[in-house]
Design a protein around this nucleic acid. Structure first.
Lengths: 78, 78
DNA sequence: TTGTAGACTGGAGTCGACC
DNA sequence: GGGTCGACTCCAGTCTACA
């Protein structure tokens, strides 16, 4: 599975855990909502600066953001 | 400290641990060497696709790449 | 609430060269 | 081996709008 899709799924799962809408996340991260939608769907190649903004908006560190099976070398999650 | 600088330092420390030159890393990741130099110096906002390429070239997972104090919320490392 | 589309601007990333 | 420059292309990211 493509890294862009993994990132998108990760953002979506964290966002929903926090009961936030894309609009909420857009507001707190200061990133355009339509862009967040396309990132969540694995269509866009997000930069590290914006990944950090998203992490902060989600209330976690970058370390926690990437501390997930999806980002292991041999994930069987897909 | 800025996230771009943290990423740059992390790449440089991992690269040097593996005894690779910027040219080596450029070759294995298929990313331009001059661009890698500017990323290591915290001048560029690298995208997730290229962070993954660098991780693969360095022989580690993204999870390991970000599993570092620098990417914690309240790092005292600087 | 989310997906997507079109039009737009700035910057990511390439390439060649020089120190 | 590494830093940086200039010129280039193309996509990241914004904004508005509609289903």
């Amino acid at each position: 599975m493509d890294i862009k899709s993994k990132i998108g799924i990760r953002i979506k799962e964290l966002r929903e855990q926090k009961d936030m809408s894309q609009k909420d996340l857009s507001f707190f991260s200061n990133i355009d909502r339509s862009y967040i939608a396309s990132v969540e769907n694995g269509q866009r190649n997000i930069s590290i600066v914006n990944i950090e903004k998203v992490s902060i908006a989600l209330g976690i560190s970058l370390k926690e953001f990437f501390n997930n099976d999806k980002f292991d070398n041999d994930s069987r999650s897909c």
